[in-house]
């Protein structure tokens, strides 16, 4: 198993390198001048040129690229143009709110999606199935920013039940952390919930038609045992892909929710880096997100092995 994990991680290196190269080229092709922006609105042309030289952006693109690769080889992601500090520090500072939000959104999604999907599958083609899937469809259709604003004004302003935003780290206590995380987690997690619920339903319907389920019925096992121990376990295998890759999407897609709820996370950092053409920061964030997807892929594969013993022998 260890050698398998090692091989998978080693095979990720070229992927990350490709992401780095594509990211470098794409962002340099995008119009916009970070030197003019950094020099300020009052800057003269000479001041902008001086800033460009200081940032090394006056060099030919191949020279800039060579320097970038050389720094990468030393695990140096460079300095953020606008923050004036190492990009790794900037990313690490924003990690806690984003990871907290993604985990909370994932918990919300799974906690709602599995019962909903199960219910829909077990009561297929009844009004319960239709209602559950209508709820899932609504979850897919409602944009996160609209839902976020709706939740803020309903539960924050009108009812006053929950805070309207901001991040409280776990070190401030579990209560404040959870209270501040509920509305953002619902806003971000609803789409994930909808996708997962639909996946659970279709997988369950497929599994329930399998021979071993019929055998289980013939053996006289209770419906509860059949559903929870035999059917659900197998139905979860494809669902795990949705959940695992969805986590990566939650981390990278938190921009809107972090903005609405004033969470100081990676999403806001990304938006600001993109708007300001902060090349080193955008490139580092891109590689970081790519690495999250790679790790989540690996975890999904390991989870397969846990759920399906037949797969373990391959590792």
């Amino acid at each position: 198993m260890r050698s398998y994990i090692g091989r998978r991680l080693a095979s990720a290196i070229p992927v990350v390198l490709v992401v780095a190269v594509v990211g470098f080229v794409l962002f340099r092709l995008t119009p916009g001048d970070p030197a003019a922006l950094l020099a300020g609105d009052n800057a003269t042309r000479e001041q902008i040129e001086r800033t460009r030289q200081y940032l090394g952006l006056d060099q030919p693109i191949h020279v800039q690229f060579g320097r970038y690769l050389s720094r990468l080889a030393h695990a140096d992601f460079g300095q953020s143009i606008f923050l004036g500090r190492p990009v790794t520090t900037a990313i690490l500072e924003r990690l806690e709110p984003t990871i907290s939000l993604a985990i909370a959104a994932e918990i919300f999604a799974i906690a709602l999606a599995i019962p909903l999907g199960l219910l829909a599958a077990l009561r297929a083609n009844t009004w319960l199935d239709q209602a559950a899937m209508a709820l899932a469809l609504a979850g897919l259709s409602i944009p996160a920013f609209w839902l976020g604003l709706l939740l803020v004004f309903s539960f924050g302003v009108k009812l006053g039940w929950l805070p309207v935003g901001e991040f409280r780290p776990l070190r401030d206590g579990l209560g404040p952390f959870v209270r501040h995380m509920i509305l953002p987690a619902i806003s971000l997690g609803l789409i994930q919930m909808a996708l997962t619920a639909r996946m659970v339903r279709s997988s369950m319907l497929e599994v329930l038609r399998e021979d071993y389920i019929r055998t289980a019925h013939a053996k006289g096992l209770s419906r509860r045992t059949i559903v929870l121990q035999h059917a659900l376990r197998n139905a979860l295998i494809p669902t795990i892909t949705v959940v695992g890759l969805g986590f990566g999407a939650l981390v990278s897609g938190a921009v809107v929710v972090e903005t609405i709820f004033a969470l100081p996370g990676l999403g806001r950092l990304t938006a600001s880096a993109l708007l300001n053409r902060d090349y080193p920061l955008i490139q580092a964030i891109l590689m970081f997100v790519a690495m999250i997807f790679i790790v989540m892929n690996l975890l999904v594969d390991l989870a397969y092995a846990y759920l399906d013993p037949r797969l373990r022998i391959r590792y």
Binding site: L149, V152, F153, G156, V157, G160, P163, V164, G165, E166, T259, I260, F261, A262, P264, R268
Partner: peptide, 18 residues
């Protein structure tokens, strides 16, 4: 000095006394 980029967040926070 809290950073609340979204105007709706600032309005909601002002109206709730936050």
């Amino acid at each position: 000095h809290n950073f609340v980029p979204e105007a709706a967040g600032r309005v909601a926070g002002a109206l709730t006394g936050r």
